[in-house]
Amino acid sequence: MIFFDFLLFNVVIIAGSITLFRIFRYKLADYSLIVSLLIGLLFYLFFPDTIDFAIVVLGTLSINTLYSRNSYVFIAILIFLTVLDGALNFSISPLLHETLSLGVGISISLLLSNSVRLMNLDNENERGKKKRTEVERDVVQIFSGIIILFAIILIPKVLLEGGLLLAILISIVLVNVAAVERESRISKAILHFERNNVQPGVGSLWFIAGLMILIALSLRWRVVEIGVFAMAIGDSLATIGGVNLRTKKLFYNHKKSIGGFLFMLIPTAIFAFAILGPLYVLLAVVATFAESISRYPVDDNISIPLSVIAVNLLISLL
């Protein structure tokens, strides 16, 4: 294992250095890889596991190269490392570090990669222009949230973390297929739910990153359930309510309405109260507020889980 760690560490450093050289040589002002290398090294200091370092960097590279066949290489390596690490550590610990590493790596690309930021901007500009598309997207997101919630409740924790991690990597592959193989059935099915003039799966990538960070950093699985409900169901209900109800705009964000705010807050608060009690209704309040203030370039699929994690940490310290 020592030789494997040494080899993997050097492979990632060399690959990252070559990519950085290309960035500066062709004057591409993209600092996401630099940040991922630094954060990957920080992860290595806290969790002395070379695989975690590699997953942060490879996660960033896989999204930076998305919508091209090059992305398949990085995703294939990520799947190999995940399976390998799961096989080596299955009886020792769940894959929380790997889940956090990949979530952080993807988030770095979404926030700092110039090409990905432009795709996010396109997605933001097209948001809400077609009512039917928005409702269809939210219905799919609600059903996805229900499936994830049932999985969290019914599947043992160790198996669930490994399964979700692999499912997320496969989802990224499908997003890439939708963009690269435009005539495939997968592409046509995914593109049906996408906004006009937007690359497929941009919103899904935010959801994936937020879900992984939520799973890795939440102190209790019940809190993960509240976060998933807020992200997948509450957020979708907010959009449906905001699109279909004519209510006043929020005074601090004129793109969001009071109706949408309440459509998310009330169901999420009821869910939090039902599974953890009255104190945890605060998670629903903060998650709804986080959704209502989210603006480009920070997506609500990141702000919601981060707010849930922060408030839960404060509650646990009381």
Rank of each mutant, 00 (worst) to 15 (best):
E124H: 12
R295Q: 15
I92Q: 12
F53A: 03
P156M: 09
L276H: 06
I55L: 07
L313I: 10
F261R: 01
E183P: 00
L250C: 08
N301P: 09
L166K: 02
L245R: 11
S171K: 09
F4I: 12
I186E: 04
K27N: 14
D122P: 01
I146E: 04
A232M: 15
F3D: 12
I2N: 14
R132S: 15
F53L: 10
L159C: 06
L96P: 00
A284M: 07
L276W: 05
I275T: 08
L205A: 08
S17Q: 06
N10K: 07
L42K: 04
G210W: 00
Y252E: 08
F74G: 01
L245T: 12
F9Q: 09
A87S: 14
N196H: 14
G203Q: 01
L61Q: 07
N120E: 11
S144E: 05
G86H: 08
Y44R: 13
G103V: 05
L102H: 04
S68I: 11
V223F: 03
V286C: 10
E183C: 04
S17I: 10
E291G: 03
S32H: 05
N196I: 13
E225D: 12
L42N: 06
A151L: 15
I266K: 03
P267I: 04
R246M: 11
R246S: 14
V281A: 08
L38K: 07
D122S: 14
L250T: 05
G86V: 09
